[in-house]
């Protein structure tokens, strides 16, 4: 088990290294732009450009720059924001927490909704199956930012008194915070719920045809016992795994959702930084979220392997 974890982690290292090179290279590939953006204006004297270059260490060879950047990043220093002149890490962390909460809520919503429709689709078959699969195709076709826009339109125009679009910080009012994230989480969850639903359907169908379900029926057990202890408990493992692997999609989607609902998370931070061409921030966010996604995938793999020892025969 430990060996498997170590191997899995070791395999991730070269990918992480590649990710860091891309994150670094992406922003340095810009012809001259980097310095101008750092200086915060488009018309500066050659003198200013030269000083800025020296300050940022841009006069050194590119691989040396990368080395320094990577070393700093590993020790938790992602550079300084061009716009605010504050360390990127200190600005990113509180926003990351907000995005993590939103993502978690969306993930759980997607799991609950998708597992329910998938289960209904597999168990009831016939018309229900058709209805669920049709709904899934439609949900997949409605991008999350369109859903979010329509939700904002609906609630903002017709139920303006609810005032759910004002983000409430968790520290100030935990319950209000969760309520304020409810609609954003739902808009973020719907697309992902399709994947969960389809996988639940497949998993339940697969489990239903297993001999042990037939044995359970031959035992004369109640339908709800068979459903809970035999079908759902066995189908849930692959479904939770798949939901965990949707983190990348959720993180990507959070950029749009946070912008639409004005939630001060990492996504909105990225959007603002892109508009301001705040390259160190973009770099930092790209690096941090890719690392999180990669580690999450490793975690899911390990968790699955643990359960799998119990699940797999022979």
């Amino acid at each position: 088990m430990l060996r498997m974890i170590l191997v899995r982690l070791a395999l991730t290292v070269p990918i992480l290294l590649g990710v860091s090179i891309v994150a670094f290279g992406l922003m340095r590939a810009l012809p001259g732009d980097f310095v101008l953006a750092a200086a915060g204006t488009n018309t500066v004297s050659q003198e200013v450009i030269d000083t800025t270059r020296r300050q940022l260490g841009l006069d050194r060879p590119i691989w040396e720059q990368y080395g320094i950047w990577l070393q700093n990043a590993l020790s938790g220093d992602l550079g300084t924001s061009f716009a605010t002149k504050k360390p990127v890490v200190s600005e990113l962390l509180p926003r990351l927490a907000v995005t993590a909460e939103l993502t978690l809520m969306a993930g759980l919503t997607a799991l609950a909704f998708g597992a329910t429709t998938g289960l209904a689709s597999a168990r009831l078959r016939g018309r229900t199956d058709w209805a669920v699969r049709g709904l899934n195709s439609l949900l997949l076709a409605v991008p999350n930012f369109v859903i979010a826009t329509l939700i904002v339109l609906l609630f903002g125009l017709y139920f303006p008194t609810i005032g759910i679009f004002n983000y409430v910080p968790f520290a100030k009012d935990p319950l209000g915070n969760i309520v304020s994230l409810l609609l954003p989480a739902i808009s973020l969850a719907l697309t992902v719920s399709v994947t969960v639903s389809e996988n639940t359907r497949a998993a339940v169908l697969e489990v239903s045809s297993q001999d042990y379900v037939m044995v359970a029926r031959a035992k004369g057990l109640l339908a709800r016992t068979i459903l809970g202890n035999y079908l759902v408990r066995n189908a849930l493992t692959p479904v939770i795994t798949v939901t965990g692997l949707q983190l990348a999609a959720l993180l990507g989607g959070s950029i749009l959702i946070e912008t639409i609902f004005t939630i001060p998370g990492m996504g909105q931070y990225l959007f603002d930084s892109v508009t301001r061409r705040d390259y160190p921030v973009i770099q930092g966010i790209v690096l941090v979220s890719s690392t999180i996604v990669l580690l999450m995938n490793v975690l899911v793999d390990i968790a699955y392997a643990r359960v799998d020892a119990r699940v797999s025969y022979e």
Partner: peptide
Amino acid sequence: AMVFQDPMASLNPVM
């Protein structure tokens, strides 16, 4: 009551 053919697949793996 009934006993089935394949004992490898006839028990619920998570119980």
